[in-house]
Amino acid sequence: MSALQWVFLVTALITVSAAVMMVASRRMMHAALWLAVALLGVAVVFVTLEASFFAVVQLLVYIGSILIIIVFAIMLTQRSTEAGPRLNPFAWGAAGVAGVVWAALTYIFIRWLMSGTPLQELGASFDDVVPLGKALVDAEGFAVPFEVASVLLLAALIGAVYIAFERRGEGS
């Protein structure tokens, strides 16, 4: 086993156990911190895939903003979090569904890999940012998704401001 494989295995183990702890923790804040660990693990996995850009973006977007907005939301809704069981009555069913999905996905992936599709590793000196930038604004490429992303973000901003601001003064 190469050193890189060890790095991947350790990271994967940490990521998966952090994800499990996230689901299992009662306090929402602890769940958020476990989520942070899982997200960091995913960032390291991106590094092993030589997708530096996405590893850094993972830090910047997921940990730097999505996690922080989740923490703020947890603090905003603090009063109702601690009571009652953390899982709903269908938890066993949910576990069953998740298990079936896991088995099915793994089966499909392994089947597909066995079918002998040619695979080739990325060249080590491949720079992932420039082609992405060109493709994003290329009229033949992904120009439309790029603009749609902007509109989506605008819609999210307007929608969220509207919803969160709606009944001001009515809350406690």
Partner: peptide
């Protein structure tokens, strides 16, 4: 190859 973004991400 993502130096600047790294600088900003470490702030997170």
């Amino acid at each position: 190859n993502v130096g600047i973004l790294y600088l900003l991400a470490v702030g997170a």
